[in-house]
Design a protein around this nucleic acid. Sequence first.
DNA 1: TTGAAAGCGCTAACAA
DNA 2: TTGTTAGCGCTTTCAA
Lengths: 340, 340
Amino acid sequence: MSDKKTDGTSRRVRVEDVARVAGVSPITVSRALSNPEKVKEETRQRVAEAVAQTGYVVNSFASTLRSGRSSIITVFVSSLQNPHYAASIQGLIDALEGSRFRLMFAQTGFSVDADSDLFNSLMSFRPAAVVLSEGVRSESLRNTLTDFDVPVLEMWDDDPDPIDMLVGFSVADASRMVGEHFAEQGFRHVAYFGHSSGRTAERLTGFRAGLARHGIDEVYVHSFEGTGTMMMGMSAFEEIVTEHPDCDAIFFATDLLATGALLRAREMGIDVPGRVAIAGFGDLDYAAHTQPPLTTIHVSAYELGKDAGQMLLKRLDTGPLPNRRLIRPVRLEARGSTAR
Amino acid sequence: MSDKKTDGTSRRVRVEDVARVAGVSPITVSRALSNPEKVKEETRQRVAEAVAQTGYVVNSFASTLRSGRSSIITVFVSSLQNPHYAASIQGLIDALEGSRFRLMFAQTGFSVDADSDLFNSLMSFRPAAVVLSEGVRSESLRNTLTDFDVPVLEMWDDDPDPIDMLVGFSVADASRMVGEHFAEQGFRHVAYFGHSSGRTAERLTGFRAGLARHGIDEVYVHSFEGTGTMMMGMSAFEEIVTEHPDCDAIFFATDLLATGALLRAREMGIDVPGRVAIAGFGDLDYAAHTQPPLTTIHVSAYELGKDAGQMLLKRLDTGPLPNRRLIRPVRLEARGSTAR
DNA sequence: TTGAAAGCGCTAACAA
DNA sequence: TTGTTAGCGCTTTCAA
């Protein structure tokens, strides 16, 4: 037990205090704690006892200032309520467990501005690395991050030319799988609901490519902006089946949208997949348990984050990596909602 | 635009450099940035230009070391993959947006050890406050946190005697609602599946209390240890209906368990709620969309985190609060799975 | 309203 | 293997 606060004064304990108790100099205490192998066993022991007795905890602000080695990794996440990102962050956390690095969170919405107070406030901690839960589109932010000369890792993206490091998966490949699956199941009049511009539009491009391999060139495209909700999936489903009576399969850009569609279909008495097949993207926890089970693209979010953490550790340990892009595989989970 | 790296040398810019460019002393630069009202408008302007020109960003390690005011809030979360915790953390993040505080994450599993390297490493940042996503049970951790004399906020708990501050809800009240609801719906032979010891066992206590108000004193109790999964819900359901053929309603300690039960019921051809009613706890996103929709207890996780953030800001701004416990209301979502 | 001097607590560099 | 000296970059205190 420590008696760090036997009296009322909770004045913090400093190396100097520990040194006095151990009968050594301050630098020896410092060494005993951060480079134990450079200190004689017996001395190390005495220091350890003095640390326990005084309840000493190093002051990171002083040590980092002096050493110039920050142990903070800054993380930008658009939303922790997105289960994919939450899982990736957990993977990152787990990969970093046991290392000297600590994660600092950026309180940010969907976009980060390079000139913002937030950004400066975060950079004031001179992070050892910066992790972004999404690929960075803003040119100014890319430049600023490059200028800061700090290791940067982008997740959930497959930019061929990342700022620095990247761990992601190919959205185009994944969507192509859905296109091929639809064609192979014999669907001929297919629809897509998702973004039609911006980076997420790659879903549509890949989807078309997969269909084209089987000679299907027409896709009923319905698009929206912003974040998809279950409600949007519901109304989109109704709109699509009404406008295109011959439509026999719909690819939704997210599981949430697809789930809404399943619900609306049930309400409308439309058989899935008998009359229309439905596929989603992301493989949320419950996707295998919807009625019927949802065909979707599985992305291993947790492992993605863990890979990111491992790549980061290697980079921080041994310097720039030969391979700065890691594209993880995805797989199609073919389930009842698209079965023929 | 800044030209912070026109040459190859990326030596960091310091106040001194900004001071030289602005033609003032370093301390004036410091004041212009952190106490602008104490600097003449014109001077402030010159400093601002010099900052932009040099790309200066303050060094938090130096400023915090000197000022003694840390802007770091440490957060302990057992898992970000728990959507309730993820939502609360997002609420916390949002509440703190715009403030000077930054969140640092503890890489921790289910428990935190006061003597661990992790704990020391976090305390080395001399956090302005510590937030815990769960109530702290370990006596030694409670003592250590008390000794550090740092504001502490526990979430998702209703300990009558928190370490410092607390934002949570009454688990016992919530479970009592389920008990009363079961009785009101006319169920007479009820079962409980969840923990039967430790703090989470309050679910059982409250549940019993609610039933007792309506004269029901017997509960078939089936318990487990650790973290509940959908699979466990599945097998528990089978076990309970087999062992107690007269059982007409089951209260599961989490939605995940209850969802597993719904699936198993469907597989076994057992009608819910016709033959057995099922209730869960937590109101996960999809609870309203299961088949049948799941009766459960709704806890506003996001708002809970937001309240925590606001309480924290007030505490850090104006000192100890008169009211350190905030017990948020919960509500029963009575849905199809318990309808009579 | 601005500045000079000092020092927050630690560890790098050098010395013994 | 241990110690001495100095200084990381900033802001507090005191003075002008």
